[in-house]
Every structure is written in structure tokens, then in C-alpha cells.
Amino acid sequence: MYPPAFEYAAPESVEEALDRLAEVGDEGRILAGGQSLIPMMKLRLAAPAHLIDINEIAELAYIREVNGHLAIGALTRHADVVRSEVVAGGCATMASAAPWVADPLVRNRGTVCGSVAHCDPEGDWNSVMLAVGAEVVARSKQGERVIPISEFVVDFFTNSLRPGEMVTELRVPRDDDRSGGAYLKLERKIGDYATVGVAAHLRLDEQGRIARAGLALTSVGPINLKVTEAEEMMVGQEPGDELFAEAAQIAARTCEPTSDVRGPAEYKRSVVAAYTRRAFGRALAGARGET
């Protein structure tokens, strides 16, 4: 597999990377883990003239807790999330999803922010981020802006970054002790894209009713789908099988799967319903401290 020719730069600071990005314009691509970009180049589906490799910028590799949210740096690998105690204690949906992202080899190199920025509707992370209500931090030479994930994911492989901007951080709301979450993924084998993925998040109020519900779906639409109708319907309700079945029906009705080698649309809707019920069941158990 031989990619077409490209220029390569490996800046050692964010500032340097942003300078380079401003210089090369649309022809430049940020190389973080390279687990999507490099295969696309080898298959000649992508041919950026300039690669800006940020792997030398060590300051971008972090997971920390700041002011009630988790901050995930642009060089944080999937494998770092799998192993992170901060994530294990701070975001159940993320912790549940991490071991299902790609395969162990890809997880060792691929980055969470890179995957989020890639906006592949078959990617797992954007469903998680939509379900928990994360924010994306983008920087350019003009400064920094914080973009809600629902505004960041624009379309099929399209994000709302402006020219000259790069993702530097993800901000994920921290679970409190009445929160729970889960990510369920149907895949044909390890490393496969999801046939269906369901990210669920719940926060209960003091009476045990639902204070916040998050639900987003992978691989059943042109983008990762946030099921707002189900989320709104659940707020203020008593959690339980009946409510989750209702949410599942909404999810199955609103998703937009296509028929392909992973199965017909009707099947995928059916799995969306089943996994929505199961995911909320697990999220509730977590929120009640039963896990």
C-alpha cells in the first residue's frame, strides 16, 4: 500500500502547529493517531499535500478533572481512556465505550479527539459525546473557542472547525453519584465498525426521577444521531423498563439505518430498540449504585 507523496512536519508546540496549519491552508491535515487518515491515504481515498504531525506535542496528552468536567487532550489515546481511573470514576458512558473502540492495536495509537473530529457516523465516540453533552475545544491563531458537540458534528465526515483551527481538547461533564451510563455495540468482530451502537446516560434527581437523559446512536444515520425526542420525554419520569421501552421505540422510529452487508434496515432498528432498553437498564443500575 503506497500513499501519494506529501509534505510532512512535526511541530513541537501547539503554536508551531497552528502556524503551519495557517500556512498550508486547506491542503493540510493534522496527524494524531493516524488510524483513519493513514489507511485512507494508503487506499488513495485521501491525498493531503501536507501532514502536520502533532505526536511531538507531549503537552496534549492528558486526562484530568477540571471544574466538574473531564478534560481529554488531543493526544490522548483510546487505550489511555481504557486504563484511566479518572474516566472510570468520572464518566460511566465513556468508560463503557472505550474497550469497544476499534481493536487493541488501533486503541494504542488512535486518539479520542481525532476520532471525534473525523465525524465518521460509524465512529463510537461521537455517540458517547452526544449522549453526555461534551464540548470540543478548538484553537487557531485567532484564539480558542468551545463548541458544543451537537454543533461540532455537522454531517457525514464533516465538523464545524474553521480553516486554521485544530481540536486541542474535549470537555466531558463529570458524573455525579446519581449518574450512570453505558455504551452497547453490536459488531461482527473486534475492530469492526458498529452495526449498531447505543450510548445512554442518566442522571437522577433526589427523588430518583430522571433529571437528565442522554441517548445517541452509532451507524444508523448519516451522522451519530442524538435522540432528543426520547431524552426530553424521559426527563421528570420514573425510570424503569416501561419508560425505557418507550424510549427504545422512539429511537427505533427516529434512526435512519440503511441496508448493507451488516444487515437490513429493519434489523438495525430492532437492535437499536433492544440495545436502548439494555443500555438504559445498565445506566440506571449505575445511577442507583447497583453495579
Binding site: 461482527r188 452495526t195 441496508s259 451488516r262 444487515g263 437490513p264 434489523y267 437492535v271
Partner: peptide, 16 residues
């Protein structure tokens, strides 16, 4: 494949 099992159980004709 899972969708074939599902199709067989639910009496749904599943194209490959």
C-alpha cells in the same frame, strides 16, 4: 450473521 439469525427467527426475508 446476526441479521440472518434474526431474520430466520422473525420470519423476515433477509437479502444477503
Amino acid at each position: 450473521l446476526p441479521h440472518r439469525v434474526w431474520g430466520a427467527l422473525n420470519g423476515v426475508e433477509v437479502a444477503p
